[in-house]
Amino acid sequence: MKPIMGGNEAVTSAEAAAPAETLSAVPFSGVIVNGISRRLPDDARVTLVDFLREGLGLTGTKVGCDHGQCGACTVLVNGRRINSCLALAIAHAGDEIVTVEGLAQADGPLHPVQSAFVEHDAFQCGFCTPGQLCAAVALLEEAAAGEPSAATPDIRIIGPISLTDEEIRERMSGNLCRCGAYPNIVAAVRAAGRGRLR
């Protein structure tokens, strides 16, 4: 095997056992960001959040702590929320990524979760809001799929999740808001959840 600095190289058993010179690096696979195919960075050290912000100019996603503790960098990868500061961009070849910029069409209506945040005044400075929005969008999907949380009364019971305020707070605990807009964030998520049910 012949690793390439920053290269995106796939190897199989047969290839790994073969002499290195017979290996050819697989061409860059792209990544889909908000529906558009993009080329991944050359430097393996680039985190996903830095690639989105610096490489693609999608500065909606924020770097807060850069250690997975604040949630400001939350994006959706293949529909699931993750901390993009703890992911290498290069490791996401072939994945579909949605950032806050991709929640609604450029000239279309806001995503229902965005509308709920506006209606319930669920932010002050706005720095954590992109991460809060992406987290809340995923939260509603997870609850609809029946995924339990630490606030679920009896996880042995498989079935629909009732999105109580306790559930919402627990499920949003990966997103800090230093302004302290939490009560209104909970209200916005609660409203968006009810809207989904209608």
Binding site: I4, G6, E9, V11, T12, A16, A44
Partner: peptide, 15 residues
């Protein structure tokens, strides 16, 4: 660091 992606367990161990 150098980065490579393994496609199966054997390749991962060999690498």
């Amino acid at each position: 660091f150098t980065y490579s992606r393994a496609e199966d367990v054997g390749a991962a161990l060999a690498a």
